[in-house]
């Protein structure tokens, strides 16, 4: 068990106090270097990001129809949210989507990445095949393709027909439409899979070798080597996929033709926001909605970072 023992030693060493090299001189040198390294980012923050973000915050307190100048209306937009039933529905839909699709997608991505990481025949072929769906992105073709599978006369129903079952039109039935979007999201697990693969590449092979010499089984290796060493990447995927899922827009937009239908069953938060802003010329309210979304996402991310202290392992 020597490799695992070594790992545990490393693990505990990270929990300790920062090393002594963190002297004042080093910190000063670090700050100078940080200014240099962050220069492009600071410039981008100031010149590109800050203005529009601030404007959207101010617009959240206005009535703004895009064509005429915005007018201050205090907290009206936020009061309106309390009684906006379509917003409440959008929140329900979005939360369901995030809580179901993110774990499913990450599990698929990690599972396939592990399977494909081990040297096997046809590895490159499978990896490419599994990634191909993600390449389609938000192409208009997706809507049509999805109907070929989940439509009333799509592949699934043809298959069910063989057993004499008459399926519904899965995309257009309010009871099942959201599920098809979750499947669509899982189907494009290629992106997190690639990130996992890149992360697995960084795990020293010798740990596994030592562990298997010590007689550790696959499961033990996974739990004691892969998970801790991959944890920064798992964490990254988790944080980013949650953010992305909350902002999920394109797939619902493309599949439902921009409506969030049938009867609002795929009305994601950002889709609703977009419809208010551009469809109904209600950009003030849309901006307020955006900031509520920011608070929700930020809360989720903060919880994630807080929890990460318990399970994410860094070598610093």
């Amino acid at each position: 068990m020597s490799a695992i023992g070594e790992l545990q030693r490393l693990n505990t060493s990270t929990g300790g106090p920062p090393r002594k090299r963190d002297t004042r001189a080093a910190r000063k040198r670090d700050t100078r270097a940080a200014l240099l390294f962050l220069l492009p980012w600071f410039a981008g923050l100031l010149l590109i990001t800050a203005g529009p973000v601030a404007a959207s915050l101010v617009l959240g307190f206005t009535d703004y129809n895009l064509i005429q100048p915005p007018e201050f209306n205090g907290l009206e937009n936020f009061e309106r949210m309390l009684s906006d039933e379509r917003l409440h529905n959008a929140l329900r839909v979005t939360f369901t989507y995030v809580l179901v699709s993110v774990p499913l997608q990450l599990a698929c991505a990690l599972g396939l990445a592990l399977l494909l990481d081990r040297g096997m025949r046809g590895l490159a072929f499978y990896r490419s095949a599994f990634y191909l769906p993600s390449l389609l992105g938000s192409s208009v073709a997706i809507a049509v393709l999805w109907r070929q599978i989940f439509g009333a006369e799509g592949l699934i129903n043809q298959f069910l027909n063989v057993f004499g079952i008459q399926g519904t039109g899965w995309i257009s039935d309010p009871d099942t439409a959201l599920s098809t979007l979750i499947v669509l999201n899982v189907w494009t697990f290629g992106a997190p899979m690639v990130i996992f693969l890149a992360g697995l590449r960084q795990i020293p092979v010798m740990y596994y070798e030592a562990a298997s010499i010590d007689g550790a089984g696959r499961w033990t290796q996974f739990r004691r080597i892969t998970v801790p060493l991959l944890s920064p990447i798992i964490f990254f995927n988790l944080v980013l996929q949650i953010i992305h899922a909350f902002q999920s827009f394109t797939q619902a937009f493309v599949v439902s033709g921009g409506t969030g239908g049938p009867s609002d069953s795929t009305m994601f938060y950002t889709l609703y926001l977009y419809q208010r802003g551009f469809g109904s010329f209600d950009m003030g309210y849309a901006s307020a909605l955006a900031w509520l979304l920011l608070l929700i996402i930020a809360a989720f991310t903060a919880v994630n970072f807080w929890a990460a202290k318990r399970w994410v392992f860094y070598d610093d």
């Binding site: 439509g151 039109g169 995309i171 257009s172 039935d173």
Partner: peptide
């Protein structure tokens, strides 16, 4: 007319479908 889900699906798919 077709069932609800078929109608909704065809309406959303545009003229060609």
């Amino acid at each position: 007319a077709p069932s609800a889900s078929v109608s909704v699906e065809r309406a959303g798919a545009g003229l060609d479908q």
